[in-house]
Design a protein around this nucleic acid. Structure first.
Length: 388
DNA sequence: GATCCACGGGAATACACGGATG
DNA sequence: CATCCGTGTATTCCCGTGGATC
């Protein structure tokens, strides 16, 4: 596969002046041909191979550490395979490829947003049929029946990939097993998560587990330079800088891209065509080591993201306790929530790791408060939300 | 009219400390 | 000394209400 030439990139404007295209480094944008993941793609494709003959592949579990490219690979693969699909909503569509066997449908569900029973059925059905699927007003049990009926009618079958299984705030593996049990036998699934298979009960129902290892240093450098190559002679990110970021990121593509993003943002703000050494230094410092995935942050409901943006803008002195943080956030006119909701949000966000509560030394009176820390790259978060 | 879910509010519980009690 | 109690704060838990949608 020719990666370099097939990487397409969504342009977001501003490039007329020759500014750096930040989107290139977005850690949540996944390109159609993820670089350096060839062997992994092959293994997944091997597993899904029966589908190309019109048969359902067995269930499987794909696992690997944060930033290994699980989402990128699975998404790319399912997008490709989905375009081959010949059936939708149980009805055959004309296929552009002559004399090929009917192929199953391929549906991807993100357990971060489809985090309830209702949400799961909603997402599965939405990925399968082209008609709009209700988000309210219909009961969960009715939706379940609808999904069951629709998927049963699929003559070849449906392969459902569920990404981000078992993350805090997502559907748990146990829950997912129950949900899949309510789907007809025309469905095969591919669960994707970070936990090793031995720790995931869901693997009792899978034929195999497919491991995706973290990126090697050179592979990560390739990811960065491929993304940095904007198709002209201009190189936004010099090789040495990419190498330094890759070294720091230690195999985590999310962190590497976040750092590259921050560095590029600095260069762009200064109207420079390329990232400097100082940009890289600052960027590395700006991306927290224990950062949670920005995908998870961006998947949060609007109001929680507002609260996060507000928290991120506070001075450290305003974040010395949950109560103080609550007060400061409520004072922010962009947040229109009551204090008690903001407080609850803060605790909930800490629960899923997007924020972190750090115990303060005891003050003598009452239970000691917790300082509130942000656990994601704020600059990237801001830029990505500003555009929406 | 029915449904899901986000909000808001408040009750219940946990924790830390100093002082009282056995 | 060990334990209990009261006070003050932090944290968790739960449930009713109402908006948006079908």
């Amino acid at each position: 596969m020719d990666i370099e030439t097939r990487v397409r990139r969504r342009r977001t404007g501003g490039d007329e002046r020759g500014l750096i295209d930040l989107e290139a480094f977005s850690p949540v944008a996944h390109v159609p041909e993820p670089s350096s993941r060839g062997p992994t793609l092959e293994r997944l494709l091997d597993h899904l191979d029966p589908a190309l003959d019109g048969r359902l592949p067995p269930n499987a579990y794909v696992h690997g550490p944060f930033g290994a490219g699980k989402t990128a690979v699975v998404q790319a693969l399912f997008d490709h395979l989905g375009s081959l699909s010949t059936e939708q909503g149980g009805a055959f569509h004309t296929t552009t490829r002559a004399s090929t066997a009917p192929v199953p449908s391929f549906v991807t569900v993100d357990a971060r947003t489809a985090d309830s029973e209702f949400g799961f059925y909603q997402a599965v059905l939405d990925g399968f049929v082209s008609d709009a699927v209700p988000e309210h007003g219909v009961g969960t049990s009715e939706l379940r029946e609808r999904v069951h009926d629709q998927l049963s009618a699929a003559t070849v079958g449906v392969v459902v990939a569920v990404d981000h299984v078992g993350e805090p705030g997502s559907l748990s593996a146990d829950r997912l097993v129950e949900l899949f049990a309510s789907l007809p036998s025309t469905v095969a699934w591919l669960a994707v998560g970070r936990d090793p298979p031995a720790e995931v009960s869901l693997t009792e129902y899978t034929a195999r587990s497919i491991r995706i290892d973290r990126y090697g240093r050179q592979a990560l450098v390739d990811v960065l330079t491929t993304r940095a190559d904007d198709g002209t002679a201009r190189r936004v990110l010099a090789y040495d800088h990419a190498r330094r970021i890759a070294e720091w990121a230690d195999g985590n593509a999310h962190h590497a891209l976040s750092a590259a993003f921050v560095a590029a943002d600095r260069a762009r703000a200064d109207d420079r065509p390329a990232v400097s050494e100082a940009d890289v230094t600052a960027a590395i410092r700006a991306v927290p080591r224990q950062s949670v995935s920005l995908g998870r942050v961006l998947a949060l409901p609007e109001n929680k993201r507002r609260v996060l943006a507000s928290v991120a803008a506070l001075d450290p002195e305003e974040r010395t306790s949950v109560s103080a943080t609550t007060e400061a956030v409520v004072a922010d006119p962009t947040v229109e929530l009551s204090a008690s909701t903001v407080r609850r949000f803060l605790y909930e966000l800490a629960e899923v790791g997007v924020l972190e509560r750090v115990q303060m030394e005891t003050t003598g009176k009452g239970r000691p408060p917790s300082r509130v820390e942000v656990r994601f790259p704020v600059t990237v978060f801001r830029r990505l939300t500003d555009r929406q």
